[in-house]
């Protein structure tokens, strides 16, 4: 039992100090390092529509005649898109391969990829291949480059067909 006021005040003060100590400590300590000091990071990310699984074809006049006048589009295209395959080689070793399925219930959406690839900083030979068509075995896009990554650097591999395909940012 706390008979004296000073002792009660001291006990309460200690509790408040402990409270502040806990808040102050765990709001900034221990420090966290996400990536080891000698490492760099490659982020492979794109969102890209693969080519259509079947090529569009011209509708015949008979087929067009059967359609309502407002729906007589001359070309008929299947909705389904091809999956997009991507491969990444680093210094001659394949470090990533992924087949990204098209999104959507009708498989007519974009294929998306996001992948983190951690590696040692320094000079590397980087090769990226991407295939967005169903037929054939060859890749539609390729890029090979020597990159020098500083510690902690983030290199982004993206895809933009309008900018020539595979881009390094």
């Amino acid at each position: 039992m706390v008979k004296s006021k000073p002792l009660a005040w001291l006990a309460q003060g200690l509790l408040y100090a402990l409270f502040a100590l806990i808040i102050g400590t765990f709001s900034s300590w221990p420090k966290y390092r996400h990536l080891a000091p000698e490492q760099a990071l490659i982020k492979l990310s794109f969102t890209h529509h693969g080519k259509r699984v079947e090529d569009c074809r011209q509708r015949t006049p008979e087929e067009l005649a059967k359609l309502p006048p407002n729906m007589r589009a001359p070309m008929q295209c299947q909705r389904e898109r091809s999956p997009v395959t991507v491969e990444v080689d680093l210094d001659g070793q394949r470090i990533y391969r992924h087949v990204a399925a098209p999104s959507g219930l009708s498989k007519d959406g974009a294929s998306t990829v996001y992948q983190r690839l951690e590696m040692l900083a320094g000079e590397h030979r980087l090769a990226v291949r991407l295939k967005d068509s169903a037929g054939g075995s060859d890749f539609d896009y390729r890029r090979e480059e020597t990159v020098t990554l500083k510690p902690g650097q983030v290199l982004v591999i993206d895809f933009n067909a309008e900018k020539g395909g595979i881009t390094l940012l």
């Binding site: 765990f26 709001s27 900034s28 221990p30 420090k31 966290y32 996400h34």
Partner: peptide
């Protein structure tokens, strides 16, 4: 700076 992975961070663990 999104071009760099942040170094040691004073993380708010709460």
């Amino acid at each position: 700076d999104l071009a760099v992975v942040p170094g040691p961070l004073a993380l708010d663990w709460f």
